[in-house]
Amino acid sequence: MQRFLNNPDDIVDETVAGFVRAHGDLVRLDQGNRRVVVARNAGQPGRVGIVTGGGAGHEPAFMGYAGRNMVDAVAVGELFSSPTAKSFLDAIRAADGGAGVAVLYGNYAGDNMNVRMAAKMAEAEGIEVATVVANDDVCSAGPDERERRRGVAGEIFMWKIGAARAARGGTLAEVIASAQKAIDNCRSVGVGLAPCTLPAVGHPNFQIEPGTMELGIGHHGEPGMRVAPLGRAADIATEMTGLVLDDLPSPEGGRVAVLVSGLGATAMNELYVLYDSIATAIEARGLRIGRTLVGNYFTSLDMVGATLTVMALDDELSELLETDCACPALLHQRRA
């Protein structure tokens, strides 16, 4: 594949530089750390700060979700590699408005270690820190081992809900409770059709044979639950929906929010083709679809494929989900 590259080793710095230039109305670079992106209005006195972070290569995640009534500061790692503890710490500092900071991140070994170290350092500086670890990927471990599941696109709903609670004046404990409830109500599944490549490595580090698909693939190409012949979009959509809904707690009032994200190299029109069948499959279960997002919200470099995330809604989650927000990846306005 032909790429827009200068030096592959500089790709993350250049991505962050371009991102901050493009979206300077909403975000800025941290003063002391070029791997921390900060919302323009971060650190409001008395408001709980929201922090996330993760490896680069998932754009617009993670930094695209920094903005108004969304994430306050984002730590950016190398491609597919956790940010440093120092970057998480600097993000926590930038987000702190004196009411504590909620670090809402995904369940990966490196992120767990670096967040733990950063939280310890922040606490030593007198900043109260609490965390929620996203684990929405149903295929990464069984239902009896949810604590081992990794976090994927459901993190977007977790940030949205947690940040909305903070925007409404929630305490740190309330923000954590809402964000935890959001992720507990989210389930995701990914399907990979072709692998992704780290530019500095130059070739894909896993294979998906032509004519096959990897059902349950992870955000870094972690193998899924099984390899199957590539089916029709409608059949793939039905299978993805089944995997997600069979694992999901029954939504109160039968309402769900839906997110279909491309993995980086799938055309938008195909995502809508997929969504059409997904919506049919969800409604066939007697569920009503509320807010829907379809697009490249959480990608995996140039992987071909898509993820489906469904969040079971209740009154609290619906209300928080509809709160206005503005960040580069998501402009969200309350519906009339």
Partner: peptide
């Protein structure tokens, strides 16, 4: 390693 590399190997 701690300040610039991150991942799992940076802290370890």
């Amino acid at each position: 390693l701690l300040a610039e590399i991150g991942g799992s190997m940076g802290p370890l």
